[in-house]
Write a protein that binds this DNA or RNA. Structure first.
Lengths: 226, 226
DNA sequence: GGCGCGGACGTACGGTGTACGTCTCACGTA
DNA sequence: TACGTGAGACGTACACCGTACGTCCGCGCC
């Protein structure tokens, strides 16, 4: 709290604020785990009583939304209009993937909470602007954005799920694959090694290529330029 | 438990079993909500003491995995080999979407838990078999499966997220859109109506068409038939 | 008849989100 | 300078959660 001294010397208690609370939550999540987050832990992190948090955040869910918003606001949206629109679209989707790489433990939060603030809408604006520049009409632009978003979300989701699964396979050994019925799962068994090894980056780019490549075949008005 | 009478009359207490526990959990989730699920609620549902559940399920997370497994095991995998592989692939992805429609509240569980039992692997086997029949090599088959899975997961995820968002928009009215900065979000504002209305089915099919259509351009050996 | 054992059960503990009331203190006004 | 006022930090309290642990009962086997 602001003591009666309002001098410019740094305060040991730098005023509690929503921003600081969200930041502490993000740090806590990244340092430990998503389900290590609790109001009590966050309060302890800030050296503050639990209920003080509720002066700035209505409830835990709102705090989680704040975390999600903070993470997506870290999207780096630099754009090079001289590049072909396909590459610019790739860059946009990859930007999402980058924050997923930077804040991996926060992703489950991001993936399961809505974001309706300006920060969350910025990438949408970019995507729509890009689709417009590429010559797609509005309805198609929205659908393209949704398809790409779905893919980006799902790819990330699948990756963390796979990570958990692999962690589990380390415990149980490869025996889980060994005692599969070969009659029922011939392809799974034959491709066990491909299924076990995963290169998230390559997998991601593979699907992204499929989608971006497919956009070429959609009807659109002649490109303005480039 | 089995009383000393082993007659065929229906028992008032039909033996507690993992199956019944999982089923009760699914019903509870669908009737109320995913986070209404607790061991105590499930126990009450079954008319049983809380700790009795732990004789059949090691912990809550295992119960959630059981729920996820149960849901995906509801996938209807009828296949018509006379159809072109593109349509068979569509049918496979749509099957996933169908269970999502039937058990909407369970989907967040499915999307966030691993499934490593035979029931969970069956769709994978189908997908790989199909890709093989279509003439793709093993590595490509795995990547195609992953891309399609990512899309299906993400599309579903986006849909429920959108549902929450729309529910929120109903509360706040359209004012959230109104007081957006027109200079920063011209396309979002221009396409507000397209963004607000959503036809999940059409959106889903749009992206699915993109992906399936793109598969045609991948290298593959000549089709065995059809 | 006795015994073992699986499974249902009760108790208890530490942790969680948060409603509510209280207290302190900077600040505007008289 | 005195006082009301309002914001915000705080403590207490409650209901609920997951689950470790010990008890107890009834069935199947020797």
């Amino acid at each position: 709290m602001a003591r009666h001294v309002t001098s410019d010397t740094p305060q040991p208690r730098p005023v509690l604020t929503r921003e600081r609370i969200v930041l502490a939550a993000v740090e806590l999540i990244e340092r430990e785990d998503a389900d290590a987050l609790s109001m009590r832990r966050v309060a302890a992190e800030l050296g503050v009583a639990v209920m003080s948090l509720y002066n700035h955040v209505p409830n835990k869910d709102a705090l989680l939304e704040g975390v999600a918003e903070h993470v997506v606001s870290g999207l780096e949206l630099h754009d090079d209009p001289s590049e072909p629109w396909q590459e610019r679209a790739r860059a946009l989707v990859r930007a999402f993937r980058k924050v997923a790489h930077d804040k991996p433990r926060c992703m489950t939060i991001v993936l399961t909470h809505k974001i309706d603030t300006a920060a969350g809408l910025r990438p949408a604006e970019r995507a729509l602007a890009l689709a417009d520049a590429a010559g797609f009409d509005g309805e198609t632009a929205v659908r393209i954005m949704r398809a790409l978003l779905a893919y980006a979300l799902g790819a990330q989701m699948r990756e963390v799920g796979m990570a958990k699964m692999l962690g589990h396979l380390v415990e149980t050994g490869a025996e889980s694959w060994a005692n599969l019925d070969p009659d029922e799962f011939p392809h799974v068994i034959a491709l066990a090694s491909e299924l076990a090894t995963h290169d998230p980056e390559a997998d991601f780019e593979f699907g992204l290529d499929l989608l971006i490549g497919a956009l070429d075949r959609l009807p659109r008005r002649p490109a303005d330029r480039g």
